[in-house]
């Protein structure tokens, strides 16, 4: 397993370097830079632009240097905890981001837990009671969840909460806790608000996971070793838990890597609809205004989460299912 771990880490290192280069190049691809955008905005509003001041700002922010030099400064800064300077907010990126990364992590982690907690029992039940009325009912609900866009569900929940309860469910905490230091009351307020975005973002993922777990478990349950185990009198619960369930868990684990970026990118639109203080809306704003260091830091964070997610899922899969795939070309 150590050899596997080593090889997997060695794949991660160049992957992250490549992602950081690609991210930086993509951010730089649109013509101009943040200052160009700012000049255009000022000119459209009829304001005078002092060219010498602009050149001084360009030199101050290092925008006059070659791209590779800018990249190197940014990349080494990341390791030092210096994520660069946000032109739009006139503050260091770390100060602009504040709690957003942490809140995004909490939201997405809770969403993944929600997806598993709901999909796991329903998937098992549906597979063990195939074509029953409950199976059809759950499948129907699953398809509805899969077919409903997240932002639409968010809008419906906002409307219903307003009509039925007279409350606004937007945001991740009560307004009085915004920009306040963390306290027990603030944490409780976050927990109180968390369920709505978790349900909204998690619904589609849950539906997809139920379908996949059901299909995988059905495949396993029809295999000969399960039939033999039942014929030999193994209690049904043990005959289910011992191997078939373990084998059908593979998609759960394999999905950790895919789920993280999906959930985060999916949550950007929902975050805008529900006014959540997460990274999504700020990332979109930073990309629109070419605030390159802010956008780059967010994109690197998302990439890092994806790479770590894939790493964790691959490690768990290797632990859970170290089998040869026939035709895979085992090198003995």
């Amino acid at each position: 397993m150590l050899t596997y771990l080593i090889r997997r880490i060695l794949i991660m290192i160049p992957t992250l370097i490549a992602i950081s280069i690609i991210t930086f190049v993509i951010i730089q691809l649109p013509p101009g830079d943040y200052l160009t955008t700012m000049i255009n905005e000022m000119q459209s509003q009829g304001e005078n632009v002092d060219q010498s001041k602009i050149e001084a700002l360009r030199a101050q922010y290092g925008l006059d240097r070659p791209m590779y030099e800018q990249y190197f400064l940014w990349a080494t800064g990341l390791l030092r905890g210096d994520y660069g300077y946000s032109f739009e907010y006139q503050l260091p990126v770390a100060d602009v981001v504040g709690d957003r990364v942490f809140l995004t992590f909490v939201l997405n982690f809770a969403t993944i837990l929600f997806i598993w907690a709901v999909a796991f029992p329903i998937g098992i039940y549906s597979a063990c009671n195939q074509y029953s009325l409950t199976d059809y009912g759950l499948t129907f609900v699953g398809f509805i969840g899969l077919a409903t866009p997240n932002f639409l569900l968010a809008l419906i929940l906002l409307y219903l909460a307003n009509i039925w309860f007279g409350t606004s469910i937007g945001g991740l905490m009560d307004p009085q806790y915004l920009d306040q230091p963390w306290s027990m009351a603030k944490a409780l307020s976050v927990l109180e608000h968390l369920w709505v975005p978790v349900v909204v973002i998690g619904t589609s993922g849950t539906a997809a996971m139920i379908r996949r777990l059901r299909a995988n478990l059905l495949d396993e349950l029809q295999k000969q070793y399960v039939i033999t185990a039942r014929a030999k009198g193994l209690p049904p619960f043990r005959a289910l838990m011992k191997y078939p369930l373990r084998m059908s868990l593979n998609p759960f684990i394999a999905d950790i890597g895919n789920m993280l970026p999906q959930v985060i990118s999916g949550s950007a639109v929902v975050s805008m609809v529900l006014s959540l203080p997460t990274t999504g809306p700020m990332l979109i704003g930073a990309l629109q205004s070419q605030d390159m260091y802010l956008a780059g830091s967010f994109l690197m964070f998302l990439a890092l989460l994806t790479v770590i997610g894939m790493f964790v899922s691959d490690l768990l899969l290797a632990l859970l299912d170290p089998r040869i795939r026939l035709g895979g070309g085992a090198n003995r």
Binding site: M1, P322, I324, G328, G329, A330, R332
Partner: peptide, 16 residues
């Protein structure tokens, strides 16, 4: 007897 591979198609792996 376990089999590990870092590739998605599980090719070019090794046994343990």
């Amino acid at each position: 007897l376990r089999y590990y591979s870092t590739q998605k198609d599980k090719a070019k792996g090794w046994m343990h």
